[in-house]
Write a protein that binds this DNA or RNA. Structure first.
Length: 1086
RNA sequence: GCCGGAGUGGCGGAAUUGGCAGACGCAGUGGAUUCAAAAUCCACCGGGGUAACACCCGUGCGGGUUCGAGUCCCGCCUCCGGCACCA
C-alpha cells in the first residue's frame, strides 16, 4: 500500500504565533495541491471497464454526467463549477456507497467563437481551441473533481469526429419505416424494392410534392436508371438534402439564425439579409416526433423541460381536408374540421408550389375590389393599374421574402396578402371560395395551406376584416347557449332548487362538476367563453325575460357563489364590455358583435349552419362534429384524420469552417456519394484565410480549400466509382450540436478504434435506461437534449445502443448571477462605478444618483465577473466548493457574493480545529466518546446521506456545520479518532482535500475517497423524550417534555395537568383536543 | 398573448407528508481577550409592545377551507424563464 502524502508543512515557521497550522488559504492550497497530485499519481479515480483489472461486475453502476463545456478563451466561469461540484459530490458519494461510478469530462470544441476569433486574428482555430482546453483542464483540476481523466476527449479530436461522421453515415444509410415505427438500414429498403414491395413512406405528402421522385418508385425497381434509383433512395434517407428557406446574408457569406437578424439586417455589421431557399443537408427528426414525445413519460426530467420539448414537438390532432380547384386538389390541415362549413376562403403560403398552377390570368369584373391585394408596399400601385394576379403574386412574394421571421411577427397586427384569381370548392358546403396567398400561413407547417374560418379563428378573422370577406358562424359559444338555456328553462323554473339547476347547467355546458353539482368555477366558465357571438337576425323570444332576469341573480335570485364572489349574468355582460343587458341584446339583434368585440370566437358549444350534401353537423357538440365530418370526408374521399407536428426536420448544414466535414462527395453527375466507413475520418483541411466571401450565392467557407474539395474517388475513399473518377467534396460542415449528440456514449469506451462504443462497455454503463444523472444548464432544454435523444433513438433502432432513452434523470443547475446596480430607469451600472454609502444605500459615483442593488447575469460590461482562479487563491478549492453548494437549492438561480465565502472558510477552520492542534499540527482526540456527540454524528450521517440523494447540498452542509459547532461546544468537546474518521468520510464528497487530510490525521491510511460510507444506528436518531408544543386554539402557549412513545391520551393528560395549561384554559370549555404524537397537542377551548 | 416556475428578516436561504415560521450562513449590535489590531470566544439579532415578562402582528395582496395554512382552494399583483401568425 502506498503511504499518505507527507504532512510536513513546508510553510511551518513562516507564520508567527501559535497558529502555524491553522487552516488558512495557504494551508488549504498546500493540502489541495498535495492530494490532487496523490490522486493523479495513484490513479485513484481511474474507472475500469468490463474485462479490465479492477472491474467488479457485481456492483450497481452509476453514470454521472456533466454537460461538457465549450472551452472559450475567457476560461472557466464561476457558473461552471456549480454543476460540476454537484455531480462530483454525487459521484463520490455513490462510489462510497459501493457503485461503479462513471464520471467523465471532455470538450465541446467545434463552434463559432473559435472561428470568429480566427477571422479576426488569422490564428488557426485548432491552436486557440487547444490552448483553451488546456486552460480549462488546468482550472477544473484545481477543484479536485474526481473525473476519470483517462477518458477525456474533445469533439475536435480526429479519433472522435471520425465516429461523428460514422453516425452521420448510419443516418444516411437508413430510412424510417412507419409500419415498424423505427429506422432500418437502407439495404432492407432496396431489398423490398427488388422484391416489388412498396414500402410506406414516412412522409407521403412530401413525396407527392417532390416532382423529382413522384411516381418513379411505383415502377419496377429494375426498370429505373441509376440516377432515378439514387433520387428515390435519397428521398427516404434519414439524412437527406432538402430545400429550406434561410436568412441569407450576402455580405457575411453565410446563413444566419433568426436571432441574428434585426430589422432585416445582420446583427453583426448591419448588412442586409434576405430569405433564400437553400439546398442543405437535413436530418429527418420529424420521423421521431411521436417517439420523442412518448419517451418523455418515462424519464425523470424537470417538468418545465418536458413541457418545452412537448411544445416544441407540438402535436396537433386534426384532419387533412382536400378542396377542389379545377383539376387540382388543395390539401389543408386543420384542428377544427368541425368548422369546415364556416370556411369562406382559403389561404396558401406565398411559396406554396401550387400557386403557380392555380393562378388566374386576370381578375374578373365580379371580383370585389377589396380582395385584390393589400397590406404590403406596392399593392396600391399595382391594383391601381389593374395588375394581373401574376404580377401581384410576384410582388407579394418578393415582399414576403424580403422580410425575416422576426419582422413577420412584429408586423403581425396587420394582415397582408393577395387574391390569386382562383377559386376552390368547399367539400362540405359545396360553396365556391376565393384562394389567397398570405404570409401568415407558413409553408413549413402542416401542408402550407389553410381553410380560413374567420368566425372562429382570430387570424382568419383579422384577414377577413382587411379583405372584406364573409364571416359565417358555425359553432355557438357556450355563454350564448347558456343564455338560450336560461330563456328556455330557468325563467320557467325560477323556483327550481339551486343544486339541481347548477348540475343541469354544468352538464349542458360540459363543465366539470364537483360532487355537489357546482360548476368548478364560474369564472373558469367565463374565461372559456369570454366573448359571446350570436346569430344575425334571430329574434329571441326571451329578450324581455333576459333583460329583467339579468337584473337579478342568475340562479333564481341567489347567484352562483364562489368564495365570496357572486357572479350574475349582468356581471358577465358588463365583463364583456357592454353597458348593460339591453346594450348587449341590441347589439346581438343587429349582428354587430364582430364589430363590437373585434374578435373571433373559439366556438366551443354546438354546431349551427352546418348542413350540406350528405352531411349535417347541426346540433352536434364540437367533438361529435369533428368525428362526424372526418368520417364523412373519408367516405367521400375528401379528407382524413391527421396528427400533425410542429417539429421540423433538422437543418444540418453550416457554411462554417470549424466543424465536422461531411463524409460525402458529389460525383460528376452531381449525385451525392458516401465516403466509405474505412476511409473515415474525413479530416478538416487547413485554411489560411477564414474570411467569408461576399456573395449572393451561398458558399461555404470550406469551398476555399479547392485542393481538398476537388479530388478523386480513390483518395476520398468512395466505393462504387473508379478510383480516378473526379469527385467534389461536400463543403458544408456539421452544426455545433453534432459532436454533443453522442459524447456520453463515447465516454463509455473512449479509446475504441473498432466501434463508436464497445457493446459490453455500452451495456455496462448505459444499461437499460441510460445516464443515471445528467446535470447541465436549462438553456439546452430543446436543442441539445432533443437532438441527442433523436440520435440515440436512431442508434437504438439500428442496434448500436441498448437503451431507448439516453438520459434517465436530468437536472438543471440554476444560474450563478452577480450583484448589479440599477438606475431608476432600470438601466444597469457597472459595479466599479457604484459606491456603497454608510447607510447601506448605493450611489453612482459619477453622478451621485442613487441606485438599487439587484442581480444580473455576470457580464464583462457590468464588470461583475468572478474568476474562479482568484477565488481559489484567496480561499482554497474546498471552501469554494462548499460555498457554491451552500448558496441555495441547486436548481435555483443565486447571486454570487464573495463576502459570504468567509462563512464556509470558518466552518472548515472549526472542523480542522476540532481534531488538529493549530500550534503543532498534531491530531488531538478524545479517548472516550461524548455520547451526545456520538448521537449527533449518527444523525448527521443520516441527514447528509439523505440530502445528497435528493441533491439538497445546502441543507446537508448546514447539518455538518451544526455537528461541528455542537461537538466544539460539547462538554467534553472534541472527537475520538473513530468519530473524526467518520466525520471525514461524510465531509469527503463536499470538501475532499481537507477530508483526506483529516482522515490521515485520525490515523487512517489513504484514501477516504474510496472508503465505504459510514453506517448509522437507527436507534440513535430518536430521543427518549421529546419536547412538544402545547397549542390553545392553534397558538403555541407552552412546551412540554413527554416520552417519545407516549400515547395520545397520555399526552393529553399530561398537558391538562400542566399548571400553565390549566391557567390558560381556566374558565373555558374544552371542545376538542388534537394530538400529533411527537409534535404537538392542540386544545380547542373557548 | 400562451406555457412553465418563483415571491419567507438587512441579505442568501430552512421548514422532506397541513403541525412550534425564520434552521444554517453572511451582515449588524454589545461584550470578553489584546498595548492595539487581526483572529477567536460569548450574548443579542422579523415588527410592535414591556423595566423584564405577558401580549399583539407577521411567509407578495384579497378572500376561503381547517382544531391548525409558508404549505391546500378561489381571485389578483410582481418577478424570472420559455414559446409566439403553428391553422
Amino acid at each position: 500500500m502506498s503511504s499518505a502524502p507527507s504532512n510536513t508543512d513546508q510553510h511551518a515557521g513562516e507564520e508567527t504565533g501559535g497558529t502555524a497550522h491553522r487552516y488558512t488559504a495557504r494551508l488549504a492550497g498546500d493540502i489541495e495541491a498535495r492530494w490532487q497530485q496523490y490522486w493523479a499519481s495513484h490513479q485513484t479515480f481511474l474507472t475500469p471497464n468490463p474485462g479490465m483489472p479492477g472491474w467488479d461486475g457485481d456492483k450497481p453502476k452509476f453514470y454521472c454526467l456533466d454537460m461538457f463545456p465549450y472551452p472559450s478563451s475567457a476560461g472557466l466561469h464561476v457558473g461552471h463549477p456549480e454543476g460540476y461540484t454537484a455531480t462530483d459530490i454525487i459521484s463520490r458519494y455513490k462510489r462510497m456507497r459501493g457503485h461503479n461510478v462513471l464520471h467523465p469530462m471532455g470538450w465541446d470544441a467545434f463552434g463559432l467563437p473559435a472561428e470568429q476569433y480566427a477571422i479576426k486574428t488569422g490564428v488557426h482555430p485548432a491552436k486557440t481551441t487547444r490552448e483553451s482546453i488546456d486552460n480549462f483542464r488546468r482550472q477544473l483540476q484545481r477543484f479536485g473533481f474526481s473525473y476519470d481523466w483517462s477518458r477525456e476527449f474533445g469533439t475536435i479530436d480526429e479519433g472522435y469526429y471520425k465516429w461523428t461522421q460514422w453516425i452521420f453515415l448510419r443516418l444516411y444509410n437508413a430510412w424510417f419505416d412507419p409500419e415498424q415505427n423505427k429506422a432500418r438500414h437502407i439495404d432492407e429498403l432496396i431489398a423490398m424494392f427488388e422484391r416489388g414491395d412498396r414500402p410506406v413512406r414516412f412522409n407521403q405528402e412530401a413525396a407527392e410534392l417532390d416532382s423529382n421522385t413522384r411516381g418513379r418508385d411505383l415502377k419496377a425497381w429494375g426498370e429505373l436508371d441509376e440516377a432515378t434509383r439514387h433520387a428515390v433512395l435519397a428521398s427516404y434517407r434519414l439524412a437527406y438534402i432538402g430545400e429550406q428557406t434561410v436568412n441569407w446574408c450576402p455580405a457575411l457569406g453565410t446563413a444566419l439564425a433568426n436571432e441574428e437578424v434585426i430589422d432585416g439586417r445582420s446583427e453583426r455589421g448591419s448588412h442586409p439579409v434576405v430569405r433564400k431557399p437553400l439546398k442543405q443537408w437535413m436530418l429527418r427528426i420529424t420521423a421521431y416526433a411521436e417517439r420523442l414525445l412518448d419517451g418523455l413519460a418515462g424519464v425523470d426530467w424537470p417538468e418545465s423541460t418536458k413541457t418545452q420539448q412537448t411544445e416544441w414537438i407540438g402535436r396537433s390532432v386534426g384532419a387533412h381536408i382536400d378542396f377542389e380547384a379545377g383539376k387540382r386538389r388543395i390539401r389543408v390541415f386543420t384542428t377544427r374540421p368541425d368548422t369546415v362549413f364556416g370556411a369562406t376562403y382559403m389561404v396558401l403560403a406565398p411559396e406554396h408550389p401550387m400557386v403557380d398552377e392555380l393562378l388566374g390570368e386576370k381578375y374578373g369584373d365580379t371580383v370585389p375590389k377589396a380582395w385584390i391585394g393589400g397590406g404590403f408596399d406596392d399593392a396600391e400601385d399595382l391594383v391601381a393599374r389593374n395588375a394581373t394576379p401574376r404580377e401581384l403574386v410576384d410582388a407579394y412574394r418578393s415582399y414576403a421574402a424580403g422580410r425575416s421571421d422576426l419582422e413577420r411577427q412584429a408586423e403581425s397586427k396587420t394582415k397582408s396578402g393577395v387574391f390569386i384569381g382562383a377559386y376552390a370548392l368547399n367539400p362540405a358546403s359545396g360553396e365556391r371560395v376565393p384562394v389567397f396567398i398570405a404570409d401568415y400561413v407558413l409553408m413549413g407547417y402542416g401542408t402550407g395551406a389553410i381553410m380560413a374560418v374567420p368566425a372562429h379563428d382570430q387570424r382568419d378573422f383579422e384577414f377577413a376584416q382587411v379583405f372584406e370577406l364573409p364571416i359565417r358562424d358555425v359553432a355557438y359559444p357556450r355563454l350564448y347557449q347558456a343564455m338560450h338555456f336560461y330563456a328556455e328553462h330557468i325563467a320557467d323554473e325560477e323556483r327550481a332548487d339551486d343544486e339541481r339547476w347548477r348540475g343541469v347547467l354544468a352538464d349542458f355546458l360540459g363543465i366539470t362538476t364537483s360532487r355537489d353539482g357546482d360548476p368548478e368555477s364560474f369564472a373558469e366558465l367565463l374565461a372559456q367563453v369570454r366573448k359571446p357571438r350570436v346569430e344575425q337576425g334571430e329574434a329571441p323570444e326571451w329578450r324581455r325575460e333576459f333583460i329583467e332576469g339579468a337584473q337579478l341573480d342568475a340562479v333564481g335570485g341567489t347567484g352562483l357563489r364562489r368564495g365570496s364572489v357572486k357572479i350574475t349574468w349582468l356581471d358577465a355582460i358588463e365583463g364583456l364590455g357592454f353597458k348593460d343587458a339591453e346594450d348587449f341584446v341590441t347589439t346581438f339583434e343587429h349582428g354587430g358583435l364582430y364589430t363590437k368585440l373585434g374578435e373571433a370566437m373559439p366556438g366551443v358549444g354546438r354546431m349551427v349552419n352546418s348542413t350540406g350534401e350528405g352531411v349535417s353537423l347541426d346540433g352536434l357538440t364540437v367533438d361529435e362534429a369533428k368525428a362526424r365530418i372526418v368520417e364523412h370526408l373519408e367516405v367521400v374521399g375528401r379528407g382524413e384524420a391527421k396528427v400533425n407536428y410542429r417539429l421540423r426536420d433538422w437543418l444540418f448544414s453550416r457554411q462554417r469552417y470549424w466543424g465536422e466535414p461531411f463524409p460525402i462527395v458529389y460525383d460528376e453527375q452531381g449525385l451525392h456519394r458516401a465516403v466509405s466507413a474505412d476511409a473515415l475520418p474525413v479530416t478538416l483541411p487547413d485554411l489560411a484565410d477564414y474570411t467569408p466571401e461576399v456573395s449572393d450565392d451561398p458558399k461555404p467557407l470550406l469551398a476555399k480549400a479547392t485542393e481538398w474539395i476537388n479530388t478523386r474517388a480513390g483518395i476520398a475513399g468512395v466505393e462504387g466509382l473508379a478510383s480516378d473518377a473526379p469527385v467534389t467534396r461536400e463543403a458544408n460542415t456539421m452544426p455545433g450540436w453534432a459532436g454533443s449528440c453522442w459524447y456520453y456514449l463515447r465516454y463509455c469506451d473512449p479509446h475504441n478504434d473498432e466501434r463508436l462504443v464497445g457493446e459490453e462497455a455500452e451495456r455496462a454503463w448505459m444499461g437499460e435506461n441510460g445516464v443515471d444523472l445528467y446535470i447541465g444548464g436549462a438553456e439546452h432544454a430543446v436543442l441539445h437534449l432533443l437532438y441527442a435523444r433523436f440520435w440515440h433513438m436512431a442508434l437504438y433502432d439500428l442496434g448500436e445502443v441498448g437503451s431507448p432513452e439516453p438520459f434517465r434523470k436530468l437536472f438543471h443547475q440554476g444560474l450563478i448571477t452577480s450583484y448589479a446596480y440599477a438606475r431608476p430607469d432600470k438601466t444597469l451600472v457597472p459595479v466599479d462605478e457604484v459606491e456603497e454609502r454608510a447607510d447601506g444605500t448605493f450611489v453612482e459615483t459619477a453622478t451621485g444618483n442613487s441606485c438599487t442593488q439587484t442581480t444580473a447575469k455576470m457580464s464583462k460590461s457590468l464588470k461583475n465577473v468572478v474568476n474562479p482562479d482568484d477565488v481559489i487563491a484567496e480561499f482554497g478549492a474546498d471552501t469554494f466548493r462548499l460555498y457554491e453548494m451552500y448558496l441555495g437549492p441547486l436548481e435555483q438561480s443565486k447571486p454570487w457574493n464573495t463576502r459570504d465565502m468567509v462563512g464556509m472558510q470558518r466552518f472548515l477552520q472549526r472542523a480542522w480545529r476540532l481534531t488538529v492542534d493549530e500550534e503543532t499540527g498534531e491530531g488531538v482526540f478524545l479517548e472516550e466518546a461524548n455520547p451526545e456527540t456520538e448521537k449527533a454524528l449518527h444523525r448527521t450521517i443520516a441527514k447528509v446521506g439523505g440530502d445528497i440523494e435528493r441533491l439538497a447540498f445546502n441543507t446537508g452542509i448546514s447539518a455538518m456545520i451544526e455537528f461541528v459547532n455542537g461537538a466544539t461546544s460539547a462538554k467534553p468537546s472534541g472527537l475520538t479518532r473513530d468519530q473524526a474518521s467518520r466525520f471525514a468520510l461524510i465531509l469527503c464528497p463536499f470538501a475532499p482535500h481537507i477530508a483526506e487530510e483529516l482522515w490521515g490525521i485520525a490515523g487512517n491510511g489513504p484514501v477516504c475517497s474510496l472508503h465505504p460510507w459510514p453506517a448509522y444506528d437507527e436507534a440513535m436518531l430518536t430521543d427518549d423524550e421529546v419536547e412538544i408544543a402545547v397549542q390553545i386554539m392553534g397558538k403555541t402557549r407552552a412546551k412540554l417534555m413527554v416520552p417519545a412513545d407516549a400515547a395520545p391520551k397520555a399526552i393529553e393528560d399530561m398537558a391538562m395537568s400542566d399548571d400553565a395549561v390549566k391557567a390558560l384554559i381556566d374558565g373555558k370549555t374544552v371542545r376538542k383536543v388534537i394530538v400529533v404524537p411527537g409534535r404537538l397537542i392542540n386544545i380547542v377551548a373557548n
